[in-house]
């Protein structure tokens, strides 16, 4: 009985601790790109800290903070070249690693020029459509 109570108290302490840890959300210094839009802040960390290279597979880490709390929801990622009106030949996949931290895999920018990265970030309550242009 006693151990059960202790375990329960322990669990509560842990929960409080981890939730206060989870609550803080900030964009790390090594983010290659930071974007702010309507109270949402996005940090993009390139794989190995280098921006994409033409024709090579790459992935990126995305940190999403909403009013300095981690954004918990879903992200859909795509990219296209506005000048040529075509997208990638690949469909990236985004998974949430922990609250506010996402990993997006399966990108290939197959041409020199300007690519528009598009992130649709949404939960049941909110939706943000973020675009970021970068030129290779």
């Amino acid at each position: 009985m006693k151990t059960a109570v202790a375990a329960r108290i322990g669990a509560i302490i842990l929960a409080v601790q981890s939730s206060s840890y989870v609550l803080a959300c900030s964009i790390p210094d090594d983010a290659g790109v930071t974007i702010e839009q309507d109270g949402l802040t996005i940090g993009i960390i390139w794989q190995q800290d280098t921006p994409p290279i033409v024709g090579e597979v790459f992935e990126l880490n995305i940190i999403a903070c909403e009013e300095s709390k981690p954004f918990v929801g879903e992200i859909k990622a795509s990219a296209m070249m506005p000048a040529h009106n075509h997208g990638m030949n690949y469909q990236p996949n985004v998974t949430m690693k922990s609250p506010g931290q996402y990993l997006a895999t399966g990108f290939v920018f197959h041409m020199f020029g300007t690519w528009r990265l598009k992130l649709n970030i949404f939960s049941d309550e909110r939706r943000y459509d973020i675009e970021h242009d970068l030129t290779l």
């Binding site: 597979v57 030949n89 690949y90 469909q91 996949n93 399966g106």
Partner: peptide
Amino acid sequence: AVRTKHLQLLHR
């Protein structure tokens, strides 16, 4: 196999 996995079939 990343490319094969993420490949999408498009009309174009």
